[in-house]
Design a protein around this nucleic acid. Structure first.
Lengths: 203, 203
DNA sequence: ATTATCTATAGATCTATAGATAATGC
DNA sequence: ATTATCTATAGATCTATAGATAATGC
């Protein structure tokens, strides 16, 4: 093999990697970084423990890989907020995208929540390097809309925090939400949050 | 000792129990149920491992004791919501109490969040037996205010969820909040949330 | 020939106990 | 006398490796 040529991963290799990462998402999001064991990963992936360690150097590498992939997914909906769009429409669309993610990607939401809850030991650099610049940019956009009188005056930072917290709540605190509201209340949540932010931001 | 007479715990016993539980709150909230080790508990409490097990039958009992105590603390601010008070004042006061708790009891907030995040394996019965009835009662109170035209029409359940999520966010996602907003932003949070719920609930 | 997988197990970490000793309260 | 604490370590659990075998791709 020539110098510097990357070894092309086989199709089986790629498929098994995905299999392991998907199993790991389930296990890590349900039991936490420390609660997850190689036994559980192997069981969930339908592989032996040594086989998992053939694909990843260890439990920690699997976890870190998962979190790195997640960061991109997590930034996407904020990136889509369009400075040239209608301000109110853009905000409500962002709320809806985040709520869709709470519904469709609850394991990812809980994985992220667990990491932040414990002080972001693995993700802290990502937060500073990737999330912070995007956050600042979008805060600037929102502040611009406020200054132009197109949104009611608010602190953009806290607006974004409240959008994150209210939407992710339905994924992260799912058990509690179920106990308290009986049914799966995502339709009601959508109506409520739409009203909440519409009233908040109307000039 | 007569039949059925409880053995009176000595003063040292009570003090050491508290010492252990306080250390455990720090360790469990920072590392999760599985991430916390007896070594860390002993270190944090300044005691030997066997001494800790002299006071509690094991790690699990310490964790459960912590969560049981927490449930009461956690219900308190909701219990204070007064059906005879002024509706808007009561709602905003509740928001402020919850935000005070995020500031003053962040470890408790994170301990609770971690437990719910992992499906409430220990607290689920408490949620059903203690939280649900109180939640339903207060939802009824809020619905009464809405029906009487004293609050704007909203679903009380989602209102409460949004108060919980927006306030606890400042404790549970503290690291992220710090990275993104630079300073400790609790004064700004108070103003923002006051405005948010005032606009939401104004008739 | 190389890649992918397994069984068996070594080594590390963590929980909990055995057994001895010191401190406290009648 | 009882309560509280310690050192040393047994036993359980978990991560990772050794070494052999099966499957895949030139």
């Amino acid at each position: 093999m020539p110098d510097g040529a990357a070894k092309k991963p086989s199709r089986i290799h790629q498929r098994t990697r995905h299999l392991i990462l998907d199993a790991a998402l389930a296990v890590f999001s349900a039991h936490g970084s420390r609660g997850a064991t190689l036994d559980q990963l192997a069981e969930a992936a339908g592989l032996s423990k040594p086989n998992i360690l053939y694909y990843f150097s260890g439990k920690e590498e699997i976890h870190v890989t998962l979190l790195n992939q997640l960061m991109e997914t997590w930034l996407d909906p904020l990136e889509e907020m369009d400075a040239d769009g209608d301000p109110m429409t853009e905000q409500l669309a962002y709320v809806h995208r985040k709520l869709d993610m709470a519904r469709d990607l609850p394991r990812e939401s809980r994985l992220f929540a667990g990491e932040i809850l414990q002080g972001a030991p693995r993700m802290h650099p990502h937060l500073v390097a990737d999330l912070k610049p995007l956050f600042d940019e979008k805060c600037g956009v929102i502040q611009g809309w406020v200054d132009a009188g197109k949104l009611a005056p608010i602190d953009p930072r806290h607006l974004i925090f409240s959008i994150w917290s209210t939407t992710q709540h339905y994924a992260d605190f799912d058990v509690q939400v179920r106990v308290l509201s009986g049914d799966t209340p995502l339709e009601g949540a959508r109506r409520y949050l739409d009203t909440l932010f519409r009233r908040m931001l109307s000039v």
